[in-house]
Design a protein around this nucleic acid. Structure first.
Lengths: 105, 105
DNA sequence: TAGATACTTTGATAGTCATCAATATACATC
DNA sequence: GATGTATATTGATGACTATCAAAGTATCTA
């Protein structure tokens, strides 16, 4: 073991880069509509949920929901797959791992 | 047990009010500088850390740090106590409980 | 009470964001 | 290909935010 950095992994102050990586994940969850959106997707389990079923319960316009889903996707929190005209969203594997790790730091 | 709402607590979709409460906590952690700030305070343990020792390591002006500390304080993540001219910050008890609960939901 | 130090507030600025209506794109069916 | 449905993008707007310099407030000490 010659790499002292490795030994200290996760023990020093939160590095600039780590903060820059983590912040956008928190930002993705920092909007009430997006939080509820993520929750709905998560509750849908493995199968996921159709985007078309997300607009009405959140009382936002279709473009707004589409925008929020994009933010969640780009934050790595959800993923999507197309099925004909529909698009199904589900929670990304290990979606919240980084956040969990930070909280338990 | 007559309150059916109570029985279902935490089982339904994330309520509007819950999301409105939770979102600001995530928002408080959604800025890289503030994340590092919170981390420094947390690492200081029970005693906390003097505000004067937070400006330099984060490479931001003193008013900016003061602003961020206010955001963290108003989000319920940290608390402060005055000691003469100094102000000491420490992690608020149960600071991340709501966030943890949401993540493990 | 006068000066020094620690912190907060104010005011300004540049950037980001949530939202919607309008428009565009993708796919299915006829 | 034409039409209808599902989703994405564009453009606009009002609100919010990170940042700093400057000025204000609080506390200690001499």
């Amino acid at each position: 073991m010659t790499n002292t950095k490795q030994v200290q992994l996760g023990k020093g102050p939160l590095a600039d880069g780590a903060a820059a990586t983590l912040a956008p994940m928190f930002a993705a969850l920092s909007d009430p509509t997006r939080l509820r959106l993520f929750d709905l997707v998560r509750r849908a389990g493995r199968d996921g949920i159709c985007s078309c079923d997300l607009t009405e319960p959140l009382d936002r316009s279709q473009p707004t929901i589409s925008h929020h889903l994009k933010v969640l996707r780009e934050a790595g929190l959800v993923e999507s797959r197309r099925d004909g005209t529909w698009i199904w969203y589900s929670v990304a594997p290990h979606a919240l791992d980084a956040v969990t790790h930070f909280i338990q730091r």
